[in-house]
Design a protein around this nucleic acid. Structure first.
Lengths: 141, 141
DNA sequence: TATTAAGTTGACGTATAGGTAAACGTGCGC
DNA sequence: GCGCACGTTTACCTATACGTCAACTTAATA
């Protein structure tokens, strides 16, 4: 069950270790239709191309896409007639994701501001418990 | 099952509507030990104080704390000997949360930058497919 | 009184990305 | 001939914050 004699073939455990994930993860991705490694008998054998595909998958994950999105995009990428459409779809998805992230960033900024405000009020209160607690910012509720 | 005759008493549905959540949510919070409204027979009756407590709970949620954290903090707030300790605990929690959020913000910034980089490369590729795709930034993997 | 509205508990479903365990097969070296 | 390391599948578990029934009781009202 060892494929190390051939430089471009990997077992699950090998490739998983190589990519910094567990074998379970690779099998899970297969379950979800993201990869389909060859088999020798019952045993999975990953090629260099499979590895490349997995690198793409992991990058997608790191960028915050769900496995479903990644799978759909890869399928579309393989089946499509030209490249143009997929690249445009990719651009759209990326723009969408950027919008989401920038919204999250604004939410974070607002939350941090509110937390800092509460901290300030709390500190003033600790310094002088008689002074009424007074927030300078108004919360959204 | 209507408590509207008394200005400070609410039924689940009333208070839920008032707070913009569902009755299920209030019962769930009770299950999790965050509130303990009085009962008339089997029926929940919320007082003005319960409402105040729920406002605190919802603010905690909005600021990104888990129900468990909120519950623990409320318990500590009720049981504690003075206020000083709880306020200091609150300060610590808030600082912790701010640190988490600022880390998230950095992650978002990095991700957005990478996405924009990919978009740029994709656009150049669309404009001139002969030119090799070339990212200016290097990803973390 | 019969109906309806609102209350109750309990249990199962949802989404995500795997972890963990059980039970089993299989080739290899000694 | 045996054990070990590694492979396989199936299936249930995790965390979070509720949503969604279902079955039942109680209270108010026409």
């Amino acid at each position: 069950m060892d494929a190390s004699n051939h430089p471009e073939l990997y077992s699950v455990t090998e490739l998983a270790a190589d990519l910094g994930v567990t074998a379970r993860t690779l099998r899970f991705y297969e379950d979800k239709g993201l990869i389909e490694p060859r088999r020798i008998g019952n045993t999975r054998v990953y090629t260099h191309r499979d590895r490349g595909r997995l690198v793409l998958i992991l990058r997608g994950k790191r960028l915050g896409f769900s496995l479903r999105e990644i799978r759909d995009w890869l399928a579309l990428y393989e089946a499509g007639p030209g490249q143009r459409r997929q690249l445009e779809a990719l651009l759209a998805k990326a723009a969408e994701r950027i919008a989401t992230l920038e919204q999250q960033r604004r939410d974070i900024d607002a939350t941090v501001a509110e937390l800092k405000d509460i901290m300030g009020a709390t500190r003033r209160w600790l310094a002088d418990p008689n002074r009424k607690p007074q927030h300078t910012r108004k919360a959204r509720q």
